[in-house]
Amino acid sequence: MTEGTDVTTATERDPVAGTESRPTARDRLRSSFDRAGHLLAVFAGIVFWGWLLTRWLYDWVFARLGIGPGAGEAFLSPAPFEALAASLSSAAGSFGPLGVPIGWLASAADAAALGVEIGPALATGAWYTVLLTLSSLTLGFCIAVPLAILRVYGGPVRWLALAYTELIRGTPLLAQLFVLYYGLPLSAWLNDFSVVGRGFVPGYAFWIAILGFTINGSAYQAEYIRGALETVDEGQLTAARAIGLSKFEGIRHVVLPQTLRYAIPAWTNELVYLIKYSSLAGFITVPELYYRGNDIASSTLEYTSIFGLLAIVYLGLVLSATNVMGRVERHVAVPGLGGAEGRQQEATE
């Protein structure tokens, strides 16, 4: 409110700017909506990540020290929510047709009770999902960059990169996971490592899933990076070589830094995909988010509410991911390179 009036007086003091940019009532309304939306998003983010981080920290550290209700147990009791749901639905019955909205509230209270109950399981699942996504994306990136460079600058051996990319992109991810999990003796080999599956270290299925997602993601990322490599003007590499850099150094110091900036939007896309695709790891018994939700749903049969809650957690992860990547893009933005500059100007207005 006070901020709004400040803007008006500031523009009135500057008559030139005032004619151009005096905020109308509609603009003020829109900007206050924007502010409210922003605050809401920040609040939701803090609640979501606060809950996840607290949960993880508690399950790993404090529960092991014997503090609190124990690992995987809810902090709150679902009883008050259940009682609220019961009294709301009985109230809804007594109001007749007017009671329908009250019935919705009763359902919401029911879902909240369920959320409290299965929250710990979802938080553990989310941990696997986050870990799986981040490590696969990072490892996949390390393979994708040389792959894309080979594809664009490889000369006679570029077909190697092409064959890898097309083979991986051309076959279903689930089939790839099954081949790795059932078809290859990886599990026996991984079990030879005495640390796998003990203490904090996840079981072998998790490592196989990381391998699968890394291979799969590397092919997709290589294509994004290849596209971005081809966007960079040929003259950039020529100029790099003209000052005495080798072709490799030119790619490393001149072409790649520009390429990776161009590739950020597509890379964000891959991250978002991977968060949800990681649910396929559930099919090879990795206890990630989807696996947990499905597991509980098939024993309680409350599919709608459980998948609704599952969707909220996935949404929270995806929105956080796009938000972070947007920040990264703005942070590394260089004037005149890619589209980030234009979007940044909008954001700072």
């Binding site: 003007d233 003259g235 950039q236 100029a239 003209a242 830094p257 390179l337």
Partner: peptide, 16 residues
Amino acid sequence: RQQIGMVFQDINLFAH
């Protein structure tokens, strides 16, 4: 190339 400086028609400054 270190001993020969080159200036290009399309300039080719490193954009980043």
